[in-house]
Amino acid sequence: MIDFSKLSRPTSAAERARDEQERIARQIEEDLKRRSEWSRRKAILTLTSDAEIRHTMSGDRILRLRGDDDRGRPTSARWYSPDHFEAGAVNALLDQLVQGATVRLDGY
């Protein structure tokens, strides 16, 4: 015999929107926590070339930065776009990272 009481009930559009906002908030919180745990270094980078975007087979978007640090040493960095960033947000960020721009990398 099938117990239909255990099946989820249909949700309204407002409930789905609220659930989606909560999911995104959890995702942002987990991403910030993971980034702060994994990476402790900081750097100030003056870009010597425009930033490049790379895509992985798993669908991750990575910004590749090349420049000189505050001591004049050549440095490169990769920034992994969080899952909650839309492609338009990553592209807007990429447009700002041009040669000569100075970037502060926290959690690099």
Rank of each mutant, 00 (worst) to 15 (best):
I2L: 01
D3H: 10
F4N: 07
F4Y: 09
S5I: 04
S5R: 06
K6L: 07
L7A: 02
L7G: 00
S8K: 12
R9D: 11
R9K: 12
R9T: 14
R9G: 06
P10W: 13
T11K: 15
A13L: 07
A13G: 02
A14Y: 13
A14T: 10
A14M: 11
E15Q: 15
R16F: 08
R16A: 06
R16E: 09
R18N: 12
R18H: 11
D19V: 11
E20W: 12
E22T: 08
I24P: 01
A25M: 10
R26E: 14
Q27A: 05
E30I: 15
D31E: 14
L32A: 04
L32H: 08
K33W: 11
R35H: 10
S36R: 12
S36K: 11
E37K: 15
E37N: 13
W38N: 14
W38H: 15
W38Q: 14
S39C: 08
R40C: 11
R41H: 13
A43D: 09
L45T: 01
L45W: 02
T46W: 01
L47D: 00
T48M: 04
T48W: 03
S49R: 14
E52P: 07
R54K: 14
H55Y: 15
T56I: 09
T56Q: 06
S58V: 08
S58L: 06
S58F: 04
G59H: 05
D60G: 01
R61M: 09
R61S: 06
I62V: 14
L63D: 03
L63A: 03
L65I: 05
R66G: 02
R66K: 11
R66N: 08
G67H: 02
G67T: 02
G67K: 01
G67S: 03
D68H: 01
D68M: 02
D69H: 00
D70W: 00
D70T: 01
D70A: 04
R71I: 01
R73P: 01
P74Y: 02
S76Q: 09
Y80V: 15
P82K: 05
P82N: 03
D83V: 15
F85H: 00
E86F: 00
G88M: 00
A89Y: 04
A89W: 05
N91A: 04
L93T: 04
L93Q: 03
L97C: 05
L97K: 06
V98W: 13
V98A: 11
Q99K: 12
G100D: 05
A101R: 15
A101N: 12
A101D: 12
T102R: 12
V103T: 01
R104A: 09
L105Q: 01
D106P: 02
G107T: 03
Y108W: 14
